[in-house]
Computed example of a mutant assay.
Amino acid sequence: MDVIPVIDVAHGQVVRAMKGQRSGYRPIETPLAGSSEPADVARGLARLFPFHKIYLADLDGIEGRGRNTHIVPALSQVLGRVEIWIDAGTGSRGAARAILAAPVATLVVGTESIETVRNWEDISAEAPARTVLSLDFKNGEFIGPEAMLADSSLWPSRVVVMTLDRVGANEGPDIRRLESIVARAKGRRIYAAGGVRDRGDLDDIKKIGVAGALVASALHSGKISAGDLLEVAGR
């Protein structure tokens, strides 16, 4: 099972995400790093465990303030060849091409950032094998073109189920929704995002066929330990 640490960046600093209420996000304070600088936090995560992937949510890009283009080179310098999944609010093929120019980059396209199915098809055609779809939910509602949720044939080989209102909320993952998506996935790898609190949650979503999880708060709090990560990665 993949456990992918998440770095949420706003105004150039790593922030603690909470229930998708982005206006209230504040710079992170974590025992893993001495500051909220993205490279410092990435270095702390690398000391915790040799992750193969890391997830960068560029909230400035997602909210239309402009991408933090300096962060990927800074993270690469710290992390080496670790694969960086990047969600920067990509809404066009040109923007996708700019992100994919970094050899370590995998593009994440959130349904909250696309307007139509045609828009998604155009973006994903740039590099299908390096593109992940994020199905975005908040307060029980799907965010994005309804066809993106209804028609699983549109999904690529890797799909994130992003439950924004559970991020950092200590409420546990949305098992019912994850089960529904896994049942329709037809062999695609499904990743849970939002609500994973501890090793028990990882075990629970593994049982229903989830391939991996995006995690932040549980790593910084120590509720998921290096030992847990080692055992989970070995299964």
Rank of each mutant, 00 (worst) to 15 (best):
residue 218 A to G: 10
residue 214 L to K: 01
residue 18 M to P: 01
residue 94 G to D: 06
residue 63 E to R: 09
residue 75 L to A: 14
residue 220 H to N: 08
residue 154 L to H: 02
residue 122 D to I: 04
residue 88 A to Y: 07
residue 22 R to S: 10
residue 60 D to T: 09
residue 217 S to E: 08
residue 171 E to F: 03
residue 32 L to Q: 01
residue 86 I to P: 03
residue 195 G to H: 12
residue 112 E to K: 05
residue 183 A to Q: 14
residue 182 V to A: 08
residue 120 W to A: 05
residue 3 V to P: 06
residue 149 L to E: 02
residue 108 V to W: 10
residue 26 R to K: 13
residue 8 D to E: 11
residue 38 P to F: 14
residue 184 R to Q: 08
residue 107 L to F: 00
residue 94 G to A: 07
residue 169 A to S: 10
residue 153 S to D: 04
residue 75 L to P: 13
residue 153 S to A: 12
residue 193 A to D: 06
residue 15 V to T: 03
residue 157 S to M: 04
residue 29 E to T: 14
residue 216 A to P: 09
residue 2 D to C: 09
residue 176 R to L: 14
residue 37 E to K: 10
residue 97 R to D: 13
residue 205 I to Q: 00
residue 174 D to Y: 09
residue 182 V to K: 03
residue 18 M to W: 11
residue 95 A to Y: 11
residue 130 R to T: 07
residue 216 A to I: 09
residue 28 I to W: 01
residue 214 L to R: 02
residue 7 I to R: 06
residue 59 L to V: 03
residue 178 L to G: 00
residue 178 L to H: 12
residue 193 A to I: 12
residue 129 A to I: 06
residue 22 R to P: 13
residue 154 L to S: 02
residue 38 P to R: 05
residue 123 I to L: 06
residue 191 Y to L: 04
residue 106 T to C: 11
residue 60 D to L: 10
residue 87 D to A: 06
residue 141 E to C: 08
residue 161 V to H: 00
residue 176 R to K: 15
residue 83 E to L: 06
residue 154 L to Y: 03
residue 87 D to V: 01
residue 139 N to W: 10
residue 166 R to H: 03
residue 157 S to R: 04
residue 189 R to A: 01
residue 211 A to S: 10
residue 164 L to E: 00
residue 133 L to A: 12
residue 127 A to G: 13
residue 59 L to T: 11
residue 209 G to F: 05
residue 74 A to F: 12
residue 63 E to Q: 13
residue 3 V to R: 01
residue 131 T to W: 03
residue 201 D to T: 04
residue 139 N to P: 12
residue 172 G to Y: 11
residue 153 S to N: 02
residue 16 R to S: 08
residue 144 G to C: 14
residue 66 G to I: 11
residue 35 S to M: 06
residue 89 G to R: 03
residue 97 R to T: 09
residue 159 V to K: 02
residue 165 D to G: 00
residue 10 A to M: 15
residue 214 L to A: 04
residue 10 A to K: 15
residue 149 L to C: 07
residue 155 W to L: 13
residue 24 G to V: 06
residue 48 L to W: 02
residue 158 R to A: 12
residue 197 R to D: 07
residue 207 K to Y: 09
residue 223 K to C: 13
residue 96 A to K: 01
residue 67 R to H: 08
residue 7 I to K: 09
residue 10 A to R: 15
residue 181 I to E: 01
residue 66 G to P: 12
residue 163 T to D: 02
residue 225 S to V: 05
residue 163 T to P: 00
residue 211 A to P: 14
residue 34 G to A: 11
residue 31 P to Y: 04
residue 36 S to L: 07
residue 23 S to P: 10
residue 5 P to N: 04
residue 195 G to E: 05
residue 14 V to N: 14
residue 162 M to E: 11
residue 187 G to H: 10
residue 61 G to D: 07
residue 37 E to Y: 04
residue 20 G to F: 08
residue 104 V to W: 14
